[in-house]
Design a protein around this nucleic acid. Structure first.
Lengths: 200, 200
DNA sequence: TCCTTTACGATACGTTCGTATCCTATAGCT
DNA sequence: AGCTATAGGATACGAACGTATCGTAAAGGA
């Protein structure tokens, strides 16, 4: 047998290089050649792992989901419900370079979804999953009395997701570490969570 | 003097062709040649009015703002405050092909802003204006007693903008005229506006 | 040790891109 | 009527793109 390589890890390495490139230069600078250079390999090597550029972007998109889930796993689930939920939302916001790159990918694909039905389906599925997860989480909050139970959790889940995306958009307009604006937006998030979820 | 043409109207006509193209094919299909074809003129003619492709996209972006303002002007400002505000928000949501194209442009530029400081500044200015406008509008609502006055209007304005963008993202994942999801998202919007703004 | 299989790089090909340049037709002024 | 400045089209050019193809080095099984 020939030289053996962990193909999945290799693909991940290249996709991570793509994310770094997006963070630094934006998604329009992504090409097979630029990603290869960022990864420190040849364009031919990239082609070995990704048949098309589209494949490459798709894996990078998947990666953003994995990174988010990994960040969620590090969150301490103890404590008041609303604070735990807040931490999960913050984990998705573009507050450092890594998350900015992820959000750029997500927004670029959102724009793309409007005209490409296959990507629309894919995003709808992912957001559907996120919606289900959020709904179940909110129902749990209701069960412990930490979330008001007079509102429809499905609608509340829509609002949590919308706020996350909407605040992400605003944060992407802001240079990294422009903390006054960041603090204001996070204060707005806290206000929304309190007014929408806290029992009265 | 030579043949005379209203240059601004010509630029607008071309930018509108660009928006139609974005609606149908997505922003990555935008090129000087494809826009020219959509506008029914030659690529050379497009170059007469736009020095660079970037200029062309910038004008198309400005156009999205103009279209929004024009839709706002058609809204009946009479009636309950929250319903009027709701109409202004709905006017920004991608619920038809025209608005979908506009939102694709906005999202694409949002993604671009993360790596291009000049575009970040421009979007921050535009969103700053929208934030000011919303703040003043909410303050007016407070003055008539239709908006609760125990919350910071600046933070509420953040939330209105974030909800608008976040719901727009979700709507872009949905094919046009998939009305059950649309209705649910609009119901979520109504819930948020009522819970965040209505006096209790 | 030789052979097979794969990783990876190098190179090539055709297309499309943004942009520059040139040409011609025409509308308005003197 | 003739001149001139501009609109608009045609064409050109170099760069960058996605992708295909070929060559080479090396690692493991026989």
């Amino acid at each position: 047998m020939p030289k053996v390589v962990d193909r999945d890890e290799r693909k991940r390495t290249i996709a991570e290089a793509l994310l770094r490139l997006v963070a630094r230069q934006g998604i329009e600078k992504v090409s097979v050649r630029t990603v290869a250079a960022e990864a420190g390999i040849s364009a031919g090597a990239v082609q070995k792992y990704f048949a098309t550029k589209e494949d490459m972007l798709a894996v990078a998109f998947e990666l953003t989901g994995e990174f988010l889930v990994r960040r969620w796993a590090d969150i301490d689930a103890e404590g008041p419900f609303i604070e735990v939920l807040r931490e999960h939302i913050v984990a998705a916001l573009p507050l450092d370079e890594q998350r900015r790159a992820e959000l750029v990918i997500v927004f670029a694909f959102t724009a793309r979804a409007a005209a490409q039905p296959d990507w629309a389906r894919r995003l709808q599925r992912d957001y559907g999953d996120a919606h289900d997860l959020t709904t179940r989480f909110l129902r749990f909050g209701q069960s412990t009395g930490e979330v008001r139970d007079d509102l429809d959790v499905e609608r509340l889940a829509d609002l949590v997701l919308a706020l996350t995306d909407g605040l992400s958009a605003r944060l992407l307009h802001t240079p990294l570490l422009r903390s006054p604006q960041h603090d204001e937006l996070l204060a707005s998030l806290d206000l929304a969570l309190h007014e929408l979820l806290a029992p009265r």
